[in-house]
């Protein structure tokens, strides 16, 4: 054996049975990367939205607002102070603070305007109640305490708002899931189309493989690996790009993230490595099914 042959045999590794990619692969990888990028942004937005919804819900659950209407000769401020005192003694309440007229006017100004409120207009007072986080008092407890002191008041435990926010959070999650499924389906359909085109373009190679004794699943496996690898690469690129966007949003947005509405956390970025794996799985499945179908048709 010559030295040259020995070196060749030592270094030889089986070549790819399907030719390396052609010009179409670049375009395909680009489109998959774009889809993956949108999927990553959707995931980040969903996580941030979910976090925002949970934060708002927690804030609302930890507090209640009491609207106090003065009765008889008692002034509104006096009624509010009495209500705050009564509420502060309820088990499950950490603090109750009465707001004066100025605070009530400030709350009304966005709707009514600065000069539209006559001085003699009776404005109900508000009492902000901070509930105990571990064992919060219920709206009935607060209502009972107020009635026992003959205070005309309405207790708002924010349950309507909380229900709305929980419902909105659910919709955000559902929309994100829907977008993800749509993106995955679009990527899968595209991969299937590309896999069929790739096999059809290489039908002469497929014929040789068949005649040499290759089983359909062997050939489908070649196609599957190729598109899974391509998609994993595109998914990785997209995940990195999305991570940069997410990090920029986190850094530029300060502690609260890009906006207080969508507070992105550093931990959210941990979801991005799933992207190349999911892209590879979707591509592998789509390519295998498409290849098996085409090979069956060819047979």
């Amino acid at each position: 054996m010559t030295e040259e042959r020995a070196v060749f045999l030592r270094r030889w590794r089986p070549g790819p049975l399907l030719p390396a990619g052609d010009a179409r692969d670049g375009a395909l990888a680009f489109v998959i990367a774009v889809l993956c990028f949108f999927a990553c942004l959707t995931a980040l937005a969903a996580l941030a939205g979910d976090r925002a919804a949970r934060g708002w819900t927690a804030q609302l659950q930890d507090s209640a607002t009491v609207l106090v209407r003065p009765t008889g000769a008692e002034s509104a401020d006096a009624a509010a102070a009495r209500a705050a005192e009564a509420l502060a003694g309820v088990k499950g309440v950490d603090e109750a603070q009465a707001f004066g007229r100025d605070k009530a006017v400030a709350l009304l100004q966005p709707w009514i305007g600065q000069d539209a409120l006559p001085d003699d207009l009776p404005i109900p007072r508000l009492v902000a109640v901070e509930l105990n986080k571990a064992a919060p008092a219920g709206a009935r407890d607060l209502d009972r305490a107020l009635k026992s002191q003959n205070i005309d008041a309405t207790v708002d435990d924010h349950s309507v708002w909380i229900a709305d926010i929980v419902r909105a959070g659910g919709w955000v999650r559902l929309a994100a899931l829907g977008l993800f499924v749509l993106t995955a389906a679009a990527a899968g359909a595209m991969i299937a189309f590309a896999a069929r085109a790739a096999l059809a373009a290489r039908h002469e190679i497929v014929e040789v493989l068949h005649i040499t004794g290759a089983e359909d699943r062997f050939i489908a496996g070649l196609v599957q690996r190729r598109f899974a690898t391509l998609s994993a690469g595109a998914g990785l690129f997209a995940a990195l790009a999305a991570a940069m966007i997410g990090a920029a949003a986190r850094v530029l947005g300060g502690d609260g993230g890009l906006t207080p509405v969508l507070p992105i956390a550093w931990t959210d970025l941990a979801v991005l490595p799933i992207c190349p794996v999911a892209a590879a799985l979707v591509a592998a499945t789509a390519a295998r099914l498409a290849a098996l179908k085409l090979l069956k048709d060819m047979a």
Partner: peptide, 17 residues
């Protein structure tokens, strides 16, 4: 198979097996 070396072409049936 034009994209494979002569050696790979000859080895093809063994690889498929």
């Amino acid at each position: 198979l034009d994209h494979l070396s002569a050696f790979d072409n000859v080895a093809l049936p063994l690889r498929i097996a």
